[in-house]
Design a protein around this nucleic acid. Structure first.
Lengths: 224, 224
DNA sequence: AAATATCCTTGACACAAGTCAAGCCTTCGT
DNA sequence: ACGAAGGCTTGACTTGTGTCAAGGATATTT
């Protein structure tokens, strides 16, 4: 059962915006606010997915873990965003990756069974979900594209340009080793590449604060 | 407008199976049977997506093309399967990749506008689509996993095991350079890796016919 | 403030995979 | 049947990125 405050947060999310008061109340009854400590697992790869989530505060890291213990960070979820909602449509309803907290975090846990039942009566909400799923799919396919057709430097520059504010600077909200994993390079390589771009005078790095000195030249690199 | 025969083929596909005769007839009116020659483009990266497709005969290659002209084959569609149906839910309704025929092929072209209109009245069909989308998403995320966490040899063995018949042999229905691109390695590397596995006595290669001599040892390689 | 842990950087080296180039083998068209 | 074209293989070389190891910087704990 959710508090009124938490229900408001649900309602603000696109996946719930089309629901009536009644439906929302019903979902609320099958939901809970959960707090997780830094590093704590919210769910694990292979676990049966009875819920999906909406992040209220903190950060959640989504990552694959290979048999050898290598980790690939797929995404770092920010407050306000839902995650693992695609899993409820998988044939095998198992989470394909691990979710763990980066810092103390609060999430809303929503029961998939309850949600699906309500979906059955609203094509409008179905369309929202389909939009979400296709958005995820689009991201994933373009990620494959970037992984195969381009190198680590390209992906770093792409990330910097995508995350730059109007003032052309980027504040990393996550540790560099996690960023490295997201870009599918090793921390050492990230460090070297940042260094290289600095020496070329294209960026300036001050710990987690990066300034894009010549954004247009950076764009040129990823186009050519 | 589709022939009765082609309408049957539509109906056999999961994406249309929940529709009434009336709805199917309506879709048929906004559809067409299209034949494409070997190498001919069905649609291109960036083009506005007014249709999605269902392959009747032949093969369709889906591939990204980078600015430098490098190609990454994402998938080779086989008869009976639909493709590009996720694009209709993208915010920017543009095809993210190229589709071209491998050999003379026949496809059914379905208008997205018409299809979406009918979807609006059937959550059952929405669920079929959501299933399809999440299946695609699941494939894509596990592909990212394989690309980042494993090497080309791993992906080749995985492919061989996945495509082996009961008799433990694999008949490549596509050219080796296309398979190489699907595995995200160069043709030279594919050739060398097949050679390496042959010399180890794990497989036997006779042009496009491959026999898995020791499947269990191959499984061991990808587990460890 | 010292001690500790964690993260980040740097250098030396190793290796998987890409590139370039040449030659081979098959398939196809005339 | 012949030549041409395309695909496949092989060798020699290059290169990006990973690995290992050590040192430096920064934050956290006591």
């Amino acid at each position: 059962m959710l508090s009124a405050e938490h229900q408001k947060i649900l309602q603000a999310n696109a996946l719930f915006s089309g629901f009536t008061e009644d439906e929302l109340a019903q979902i609320s009854r099958f939901s809970a606010f959960v707090e997780v400590e830094n590093q704590q697992r919210l769910f694990e790869q292979g676990q049966i997915a009875k819920d999906f989530f909406l992040l209220v505060s903190g950060k959640i890291k989504l990552a694959f873990l290979s048999a050898e213990g290598l980790e690939k960070v797929v995404d770092v979820i920010q407050p306000g965003h839902s995650f693992a909602e695609a899993v409820m449509f998988f044939r095998q309803r198992k989470y394909p990756l691990n979710a763990s907290a980066l810092g103390h975090s609060g999430v809303l846990r929503v029961n998939t069974g309850c949600y699906l039942k309500i979906l059955e009566s609203s094509t409008k909400s179905c369309f929202k979900i389909m939009g979400k799923l296709s958005q995820r799919l689009h991201w994933a396919t373009s990620e494959i594209n970037h992984l195969v057709l381009h190198d680590g430097k390209y992906r770093l520059i792409k990330f910097l340009l995508a995350n730059a504010k109007k003032s052309n600077n980027v504040d990393l909200s996550i540790a560099k080793n996690i960023l490295a994993s997201q870009l599918s390079i090793k921390p050492e390589t990230l460090s070297r590449t940042l260094n290289e771009l600095s020496k070329q005078g294209l960026i300036a790095v001050d710990s987690s604060h990066i300034v894009l000195l010549k954004p247009s030249e950076l764009e040129d690199i990823i186009i050519s």
